[in-house]
Structures are given as structure tokens and as C-alpha cells.
Amino acid sequence: MHTVWVRLNAVVFFGLTALLGFSCLAALSKLGHSLRHKPVVEVLKLNTLRSLKSHGGYDRALLSFDLMVDLAPAFHWNIKQLFVYVVAIYETEGRNNQIVLWDKIVEADDEKVIDEKNVFVKYALSDQSDQLRGKDVTLQLQWDHMPITGLLYMDGQAVESASKFRLPAEYQ
């Protein structure tokens, strides 16, 4: 019986199936892109340590950094935006710590070269206790690919090439 409803149902169902198929194809079309094209972080290093203080028993450092990277290789037609962030990695007694200090959303239409000097952190480097003094901190750039449709995946600067610095042994 070919009523309006049966036809409508068939059209909607076929439309959704086709949409799903195209979405899958779009996601598959750029599989492995990050293996072939990887942005190179030219510069990411500490510029100035502004302060290292104790805030009610918790250590907190404020700093600025230099960053230079061309993110264009990470983009392709199914990438809506990159979420780029600077991570401070350090170890304290019995703890591995990763803290995001700064982040930026780079959309597909935006300028993809980030070349900035003396960028002040958006989030303080604050410890869970009072153990920041004299610690080695690694600054690493990472980015998260946000697709229009499909899989989310992350990438980042190789840890070996990331720059390190040592926080002073006294508050300042």
C-alpha cells in the first residue's frame, strides 16, 4: 500500500542512510592525515618567570613564553578547528602533573601561523601543594583536531624536543 506515509518514511530513511554514509566517507577520506602532515613547533620556550609565590599553602607560578608554529599542515577539509594548548609537565613527590597554561582555538578560516613573543599564561601554573620550588618543568605544545564530522584525534610536539626550565629554589 503506497500511502503518503510509506513514501515519506522511505524518503526520510534513505536520506538519513545516505547522510550517514557520506559522513563516514568524509571521515575516512582523511584517515592517517596526521601521519603524513605534522606541524613543526619552531619555538616554544619560557620567556620570563613573573612570580613564584605561595597562595595559602599552594604554590603558584606566573610566567610568559614565546611560541612560533605553523599549524597549516594539520588542517584539511574535514577539520573545523584546532584546539591548541601549552601544557606544563612536572613531577612532584608521588605525583605526575599536567597543567594547561594557555590555549587557543584556531578555526579553519583563521590565520594558522602563531608567532608570538612574551605571551602571558591564561591559567596559572598552580600546584596541588607547595612543591613547585626547584622543580623542572617541561613546556609542550599539543593540539586537538575537531572534525566537522568524524573522529577526534590529538597530536603534539615530541616530548624530546620540548623545552625545559627549572623553577627557582626560593619564592620570588
Binding site: G94, R95, N96, N97, Q98, I99, D103, Y123, Q128, D144
Partner: peptide, 22 residues
Amino acid sequence: HRILKVHLDTDTFQVDLLTKGD
């Protein structure tokens, strides 16, 4: 939301996480 901070206890492997919306 997105994870902003991870503090991993290396003995118990418990994590303390802080999140934030972009």
C-alpha cells in the same frame, strides 16, 4: 568539557582532574 589539569598519584594511580568548557 575539556580537561585542563591532571594530577596523577603515582602510588595509587588515582587522578585529580579539573575541567573547563572551551
